[in-house]
């Protein structure tokens, strides 16, 4: 019995950390609810230091497997399942959900103003840097929301 408790605790702890890393930012920053300053700070902290939290969780889960190994097949498979769940939750937490919903435009394409194919009354966000002028249709930006661009020699981020 002496090895059972530590491996279970280690494995469950690892899984909890990985799940918290996955769920906290999504829970706090779900749409249509206010975000208080403290909960927002916690969610952003988890996002920033998520890789370190997951490294810790992975090491804990691996240690649980090592401890469970001499205890026979049942313990071995229990610890391995917890390790896999930990790695799975960790992997999921590395997905940027917001960019899955509103895909980024890493290579934006442009047309001459007369060849945009837009109706005359379509609204664009217009910017001018020196002689260079670019327009970003609101209907496109309202979907992608963020666009990294360079106008003239000025790197800008277009937001909507």
């Amino acid at each position: 019995m002496s090895t059972r408790r530590p491996f279970v605790l280690l494995g469950l702890g690892a899984l909890l950390i990985a799940l918290a890393t996955l769920i906290t930012p999504l829970w706090v920053m779900r749409p249509f609810r206010p975000q208080g300053p403290t909960e927002l700070a916690v969610a952003l902290w988890v996002l920033r230091f998520g890789p370190w939290l997951l490294l810790g969780a992975g090491l804990m889960a691996a240690a649980a497997v090592v401890r469970a190994w001499p205890g026979g097949w049942w313990r071995r498979s229990g610890a391995v399942v917890m390790l896999l769940l930990t790695l799975g939750a960790g992997g999921l937490s590395r997905i940027n959900v917001f960019e899955k919903m509103f895909e980024p435009m890493p290579a934006p394409r442009f047309a001459a103003a007369s060849e945009s194919g837009l109706p005359d009354e379509a609204i664009v966000m217009a910017v001018r840097v020196g002689e260079a002028a670019r327009a970003y249709p609101v209907e496109v930006m309202a979907y992608h929301h963020v666009l990294n661009d360079v106008v003239g020699d000025q790197p800008i981020v277009v937001t909507y």
Partner: peptide, 15 residues
């Protein structure tokens, strides 16, 4: 778009 064309005839529009 029409106004943008008038003010910036050489301007570009994001596709």
């Amino acid at each position: 778009v029409a106004r943008f064309r008038v003010e910036s005839s050489a301007g570009q529009v994001l596709l």
